[in-house]
Design a protein around this nucleic acid. Structure first.
Lengths: 240, 240
DNA sequence: AATGTTATGTACGGTAACGCACATAAGTAA
DNA sequence: TTACTTATGTGCGTTACCGTACATAACATT
């Protein structure tokens, strides 16, 4: 069964839930495995669970009619996926895909809604998280308009890295290209430049970050803006 | 004083507020004039009012360090500005600027919060609206990545037009460029093409839409996606 | 009418990213 | 080993958009 002692430390939102709310939710928390590529929600489908990743990363993508796509936001241990449940729209137009395999927990939508409506601490927490996601989405919009692939590649690496243990990342250039909504060759080029500067080492789907401070310098402002806003809105949620 | 009979019909969210909530809010509704260019909230500043435009349009912009900017979403009679109040973060990193002058109403943040916490109908309404704004932001992100200036110009015209009476729009190319986050010359070119096709007529800050169906055809899918999602989430809020 | 200001038009070299085609290399399976 | 698949490298012409500079035209001011 679930180890209740460790449970609360595995997701940032869990850690921020007050004691009495926690006691009510605890019986309804289910373990849920997230293999790479799993689609958690297709565009327009109603959500029946709120997902809380631990070491997994979920990408929120938007797919255009012509088949091209772009990542809107990324969710890891610091948050949850399925905000449309408590925003009331039930579904979203975004597709959620597991970008990095791992474990997560989930809670039935009905259970969350019950608590959301009756407990303002949980509601406040989830809404503050929602604003953090909005910030990330906003920043993505501006980033897509104004920053180079190089910069966005670095930003993306950092956001992913923050949600993982260690300094390695399993991800092909093809997939990164899909996230950024650019050509695979564009990512190849960007990765080359960054590697030439000794910042990363790229080998067939494995990226090792060798010099994180430099990576942050090469990234656009968007990374820090988003990170700082998460820190502000969810102060005790992040550092694990 | 405020004409209470007409009041409820001037903003889509007002119209969707239930009778008893409405009676409680009514004494706190203030008139507020929105002249062109007025800045309602600077990046990082705390919001003390929730604004409900009637015939005014508010642009949510994001300003980058280097001075360039991009519009994230647009708010008119169908919604409100200041969602960060009830999301709990108080401030946002976006700047809100009056894009088209007009009248609006506003309610003190404290009054809204009181109702938001005690009345689930108002809460549900505002949260559904929040999801609609998220959709718009998401679509902006993808649009910035994948669509041409021509398409975005058309989309932008349509979104503005939907929030105004008539088929005319007072707006210089310079300002549109700022919204879209592109060069002014880029907008000049786009406007030329669209005008050459007889879809609009552009004269020194005045745009008349002559053929709206064609304008919709020239726009990217983003316009309809956003519009349909607003219709879904706020069914009785739109058509005035 | 003369002048200034604001909005728009036009031109041109530069560049980031695209689409496409194909080469290479690193793993995988037989 | 051999063959196959998958991931990455590379080249090249094309395009959309940029930055800059400057011209024109409409309106405003006196």
């Amino acid at each position: 069964m679930i180890d209740e002692v460790k449970l609360k430390d595995q997701n940032g939102l869990f850690r921020s839930i007050s004691e009495d709310t926690w006691r009510k939710l605890l019986p309804h928390i289910e373990e849920f495995d997230m293999p790479l590529g799993l689609v958690l929600s297709d565009s327009g489908c109603s959500q029946s669970y709120l997902y809380f990743p631990t070491n997994a990363i979920v990408s929120l993508l938007y797919n255009l009619e012509n088949g091209s796509s772009a990542e809107i936001a990324v969710v890891g241990y610091e948050g949850c996926f399925g905000v449309s449940i408590f925003l009331g729209g039930q579904s979203t137009l975004t597709t959620a895909v597991v970008q990095s395999a791992g474990k997560s927990y989930r809670i039935k939508a009905s259970v969350i809604m019950e608590e959301f409506n009756n407990s303002s601490p949980l509601r406040n927490l989830l809404l503050r998280y929602t604003q953090a996601v909005i910030t990330q989405t906003t920043q993505t919009a501006v980033c897509n308009r104004h920053h180079t692939i190089d910069q966005q590649f670095c930003r993306w690496l950092l956001l992913s890295l923050d949600r993982l243990d260690g300094n390695e990342l399993v991800m092909t250039q093809e997939l990164i290209a899909n996230m950024l909504g650019v050509r695979r060759e564009g990512v190849t080029e960007a990765a080359h430049k960054i590697q030439a500067e000794g910042i990363i080492k790229y080998t067939r789907g494995h990226i090792s970050v060798l010099n994180r401070p430099m990576l942050e310098k090469r990234a656009c402002e968007c990374y820090h803006v988003v990170k700082d806003e998460y820190d502000r809105l969810l102060p005790h949620t992040l550092a694990i």
